[in-house]
Design a protein around this nucleic acid. Sequence first.
DNA 1: GGGCGCCTTCCGATATGTGGAAGGCCTGGC
DNA 2: GCCAGGCCTTCCACATATCGGAAGGCGCCC
Lengths: 257, 257
Amino acid sequence: MIETQVRPADTAPTRRSSVERVHRLLSSFDYEHKRLSLSDLSRRAGLPLSTTHRMVTELLELGMLERDQHNLLCIGVDVWKLGLLTPKTYGIQRVALPFMQDLYATTGLPIHLGIPEGDKVTVVESLRPRAPGRERPRIGQRDPLHSCAVGMALLAFSDTNLQEAYLAKMSLDRHNGPEPQTVRRDLAQTRANGYAVNSIKTAPNIALGAPVLNRAGQPISAVSLVVLEGTATPPYGHLIRNTARAVQRTAWEQGIA
Amino acid sequence: MIETQVRPADTAPTRRSSVERVHRLLSSFDYEHKRLSLSDLSRRAGLPLSTTHRMVTELLELGMLERDQHNLLCIGVDVWKLGLLTPKTYGIQRVALPFMQDLYATTGLPIHLGIPEGDKVTVVESLRPRAPGRERPRIGQRDPLHSCAVGMALLAFSDTNLQEAYLAKMSLDRHNGPEPQTVRRDLAQTRANGYAVNSIKTAPNIALGAPVLNRAGQPISAVSLVVLEGTATPPYGHLIRNTARAVQRTAWEQGIA
DNA sequence: GGGCGCCTTCCGATATGTGGAAGGCCTGGC
DNA sequence: GCCAGGCCTTCCACATATCGGAAGGCGCCC
């Protein structure tokens, strides 16, 4: 009878609450798309143009979106200000930055700071020579824990149960990744040394990473130092380990961790 | 007839769209309230507890909110990552930071970076000795343009119409502020010098500020240097002005401005 | 042990957002 | 100069998400 009752077969059955719509709009922006027109935003978010239009109007009024000089839409300064409040990133970044700068000034080597997020590590800060094309890792980027020195430092000093859970999941959805057994051995070595060693695939470099622990002994972040392959690791390992300790000490003093 | 048409007199007539609700939830967090319980959040946002509960559940799933170790709610790392995309703050901060660090390393004096936002200046970066109690200005803080060297540098090199509009509004809602005529003279002096001079009320210091212009000649940010009152300004004025120029040059090269 | 605050879940009525469609405005091609 | 195809804006009937009270389960402190 009522033919229109039949779902158009293509109509997304996705339940889209209003907060999810806001999220879709905001997360349509990324590093390659910092500025979007209304239509582009509508397409990327998968929302009808009229809905996008209304919501964007409100977001502009609230300061969560802004218009640039070309009238394109971009994330508003208010969102940046909100982001300053995330305890996990901002606090530790403020504390670590001076020590990272000192290390960078004395060695001239790339320095990175990361925090754990589930089974990934998020790059929070990165100091390195400003060279065209060498913009990896990018701040905000997420990588698997076992793929970098920062991640290995975090994993090696995590609770044993977490380590085992991570290794178990690794061996499950493993595709061209390293052997869990290899990772397990590296983790033991990392704990013994006090710092992680990881060779970079894309360059003749190795990264040395050391963790920053909170008062409960859990790793809340890690710093890494990238040296040329063939460099004697012990002195540089001690260097990054001491930087991590200095950050940790300051974080404790300031109640960050 | 229909008595229920009478508004309950107390019922908030506030039109609360769903995006505004999301905004109210998120902006209930601030520097003094980085972590909130669900009930606190509900109260601060002025939203019913059941609504808050449902929306918070969704925001947690989407990563816009997180729970800390005490199960309190806080802004999620995803919001921090979104904030990295704001062109006005993040790009210029990345460019300016190395130059600010050099200046800080050589002089040991406090350095600040600000961007214009309407008739306010927002503090984007700040390097200074880590001393208890001296945590002003805070990053993210907004101040009137005429209240600081950074703001004056921005205003002095803005379009004349904007300056006049600002001064006009200043004289309108003026309360214990400085004479617009005084500000006007200071602006002229700033343009003549190439840097702004502003004495700090709360300390025996003066701040020197210089603008960073985009290719169109509009100020997109400004840096300032805080020196002791009585210091000979010219050499330090040149110093901060040169830092601003170096930032500007790099920003142009990288297409930031 | 009782009281209190917090979190969670349920529900019907209704206020609220939704999105198709249509119109205006520009720009670029022919 | 005119048409085509973007983009942005506005409207309105419909459907749906939201409100807010109430009730139950925790955990904590007095």
